[in-house]
Design a protein around this nucleic acid. Sequence first.
DNA 1: ATCTAAGCGAGACGGTACGTCACGTCTTGGG
DNA 2: CCCAAGACGTGACGTACCGTCTCGCTTAGAT
Lengths: 200, 200, 200, 200
Amino acid sequence: MIEPVKPADAPRRGRPRDPQLREAILDAARALLDEQGPAELTMEAVAQRAGVGKPTVYRWWPNRHAVAMAALMAAPAAAPAERRPPDALQALQQQLLDVAYTLATRTGRHVTSIIAAADPATEVAKAFRHHFVLARRGEGRDCLQQAIQQGTLRADLNVEVALDQIYGALFFRVLLGHAPVDEAFVRALLAQVLRGLAPG
Amino acid sequence: MIEPVKPADAPRRGRPRDPQLREAILDAARALLDEQGPAELTMEAVAQRAGVGKPTVYRWWPNRHAVAMAALMAAPAAAPAERRPPDALQALQQQLLDVAYTLATRTGRHVTSIIAAADPATEVAKAFRHHFVLARRGEGRDCLQQAIQQGTLRADLNVEVALDQIYGALFFRVLLGHAPVDEAFVRALLAQVLRGLAPG
Amino acid sequence: MIEPVKPADAPRRGRPRDPQLREAILDAARALLDEQGPAELTMEAVAQRAGVGKPTVYRWWPNRHAVAMAALMAAPAAAPAERRPPDALQALQQQLLDVAYTLATRTGRHVTSIIAAADPATEVAKAFRHHFVLARRGEGRDCLQQAIQQGTLRADLNVEVALDQIYGALFFRVLLGHAPVDEAFVRALLAQVLRGLAPG
Amino acid sequence: MIEPVKPADAPRRGRPRDPQLREAILDAARALLDEQGPAELTMEAVAQRAGVGKPTVYRWWPNRHAVAMAALMAAPAAAPAERRPPDALQALQQQLLDVAYTLATRTGRHVTSIIAAADPATEVAKAFRHHFVLARRGEGRDCLQQAIQQGTLRADLNVEVALDQIYGALFFRVLLGHAPVDEAFVRALLAQVLRGLAPG
DNA sequence: ATCTAAGCGAGACGGTACGTCACGTCTTGGG
DNA sequence: CCCAAGACGTGACGTACCGTCTCGCTTAGAT
């Protein structure tokens, strides 16, 4: 989670922060994101909508990007994985479909635009990228390695490159919008990644 | 090019706009982008640095995103292609290296982040995406189709998906920053895309 | 007048400031002072009431004290002097009555409290003190000197001390509020200042 | 003293207030006043400097003006009167010199400006005015009346007006700052008040 | 010797105003 | 009609204090 302000190991003096307010703020931020998009998510609007003073928002997060990220972080990073098949490649395909579904949401588009807008060096930005993209890619890595052990993938493949082939393609379509991100695409993508472009 | 303000077919009365000013503005914008990044590129800073009044900037471009894009559009979308080899796959690899080299620049990172941040529906944003990414992807499509005819690629492959595998992976690494975008990556990527992940 | 921001000898480039706005701001400030007192005179309230943006207020004056002073400066520093008698001492008495009348107003009390609250070293504060107090005292000095020449006052008196005896007493009552500031007081004051406390 | 919060006749259960904290708070307030002036005396700064929680400050005084006044009330209202001469006018002069000396301090200037700035209707403000000014003026009244009985002053003089002539002049110079408040001034003032301005 | 109400440091809280910044538009005077 | 300069209304920024509240902990008088 994103908790950049509170060190959490202090001896806890003074009145503790109210976690309900944290949630109220995030709820307000989510509502604004949903209704008006990331550009209209202002600190003042968030504070007012949450029924909270501006300084309280700043106590939890240092700026509006951080609030936006924290608000989205509570959203599911992918559709929940229910009973993924034991076959690693089938599990991968199922997860890709889940991710594609999530990214196709309005929220998904906000995620990509916020990833791009925030200062990439920030801790919060790193956590955000990891939560929404790199963690999914990490799950994909597990699938690939399992598939290698199951013998359904070549043993000498370059896993990192393979992951970028797959997840990069997904992300690319979401970001550029030049072609749909749907089930057919995910299936075609995975099939072609496996088979390769070379003849024979 | 991005010229959304000037209708161009008006009867052209009065003093004409000074094209030198246009260049001065773009120079200033480029300098600011380079020195401080896209977030600090404000209309006021651009105007002052260019020694130009704010309304003059607004005469040429409608908002700061447009200025940023116009400033970057003058940058090369890829290293210039000199004598690409007749072999289509080699030509593709060469172009990918050129694109990778360009995207790995500071400017390149700005490009990707602006693509991700801007309202995707805008004309300017479309032109921008096309200039920097889709046009390159289009060149890649030519290579792939030529390779198919040359018999160095399978005839039944899904070209669009293949293009996303390749260019998406490149873009993905630039935007997420989780791994380097260098020559080794481009070679490994292309090789693996061709060969596929499946065993045998 | 208080014009601390505008240097006034620049070549006057760009759009000039709108003097009507200056007046609108001062009107708003005066209204707020009158209705709610100096403590409630906030920049935000002034700007809103004047139908003006906050930065416009700050373009004319650097802080709220300066606005308050400028607003009061337009108020009469003393009731207008109509046909002061040729006799210098009578003229002095008339002016004292005018000043007393003005200081007894609500505005008069604001003046004293603002004199006390503002940083005394500021140019604005100096102008303010001069406008409301020291200028009146200066007029009194003219009267005293004239009276000396007319032979109705001792030639060897200490004029500055005499002025403080007179105007200080007035101000003292306004500020401390321990006794009324009315016509009887002014007459008694002047009479006793002239006659002295010593017997014989 | 100023003790507006403590009712003092309650049954006094629970832990009593720590009078040392009261002093620590006033010390901190005095230090801030001395170093940075009345405008920078904030409740937060006082509490922090005193090593005390904000509620503790509010337990003793209701707002920052009250704290400022309480802090200054501990300061001497006039230099201590040692062996005032039996001659009433000489005693008056000595007391005036003491008061002048005290008011000429940095602290003295704060006192005057706080008197002028505070809401005059408050109990605290009344106590403050009395402590620093009206009590001195009261001592002066004693001197004057004694001098009348001793025959060194006219029997028919207006005592209240005379007191304002004297103490008002002193206060006036401190607040307006247009002339020094020193021994020469006090002597000249008293001499001229006695002798009067009228010729002969 | 407990009990217990209040004091206490710390600091979160809702609020309000601060003074600044950039936006995009409008208005000067001068080419 | 273009241009540099810059004022304008708007609106958000992030900060500072206000005065109140809530924590967990003393502390000392009442029981």
